[in-house]
Amino acid sequence: MKSIRFDALLRVLVLGLPLLLVAILILGPLGIMVAVSFWKKTGFAMVPDVTWHAYATFLSGVRIEVFWRSLWVAVSSTVLMLLIAYPLAYIVAKKVRPTLVGVTLFLFSVPFLVNFIIRTFSWSDILGRSGFVNSALMGLGLTDAPLDWLLYSDFAVYLGLVTAYMPFMIFPIWLSLSGTDKRYEQASWVLGEGRLMTFWRVTLPLSLPGVFAAAIFGFVGAFGEFAVSVILGGTGYQLLGNSIISSLNVINYPLASAMSTFAVLVMLILLVAWFFFFDLRLFLGKIMGRQ
């Protein structure tokens, strides 16, 4: 009897300790960051306090403009990314032969894994005044002078954001599209709905958990972006990530924490909404296997 109890205790320790460690290392920093956002900055140090000073600095002056711009860029680029990622996920789930699905997803994931800062450097190379696109356009005689709006523009920033975050958004959408029961669609066809209405009223609603997960991922990435804005947006183009880094550069940890807390809060609200509206088990059934 004793050995069985010891066995059970050991199992709790072996499985529980790593989980506890991870919980401390994830929640601890986030919790301390929230606390530090209420601290006071004194010279190059900070002292524990309960003050809204950092938030007041954030919410007044230029930083709030950066916040609004980040919000707008994040929302609009997420919509753009969904419009590209959803058809791709749909094609992988419904059109690609089952034996080729793995290969196709692999092809989409390879670029995602190459450092996105390197990929962003490359876009500034490709889109620059003497870059590939302008050379090709002028070589073909389509334009006389290099196009200026290709680089250091909204266009370049959106292109950078889409290629940075869109590939990963295909996966959750594909998961929920391929996880739904085909018979729902067939039933809709049998009952006389056309393909378009079936998609609109059956397929799309059933895939919303994946769409929402993808949207959160893309939104959070674009919202806290720092590299795309510097490399492709040009001087002065700041997003929330740049604003946070600039406050770190002057060693203002409370301000950096306040802005980061804000970003994490927005993300948490979205995640809680996701948990609230959708059943995680349904969505993850494919990964977790039988329950």
Binding site: P29, L248, A263, V264
Partner: peptide, 25 residues
């Protein structure tokens, strides 16, 4: 699954800069 996965997948949804700031402080 909700609790454990929610915890482990959390860093995926925190902006990189914010996660860096959190770890630094």
């Amino acid at each position: 699954p909700r609790l454990i996965l929610g915890l482990v997948l959390l860093p995926l949804f925190v902006p990189g800069v914010s996660m860096g700031v959190a770890m630094a402080v």
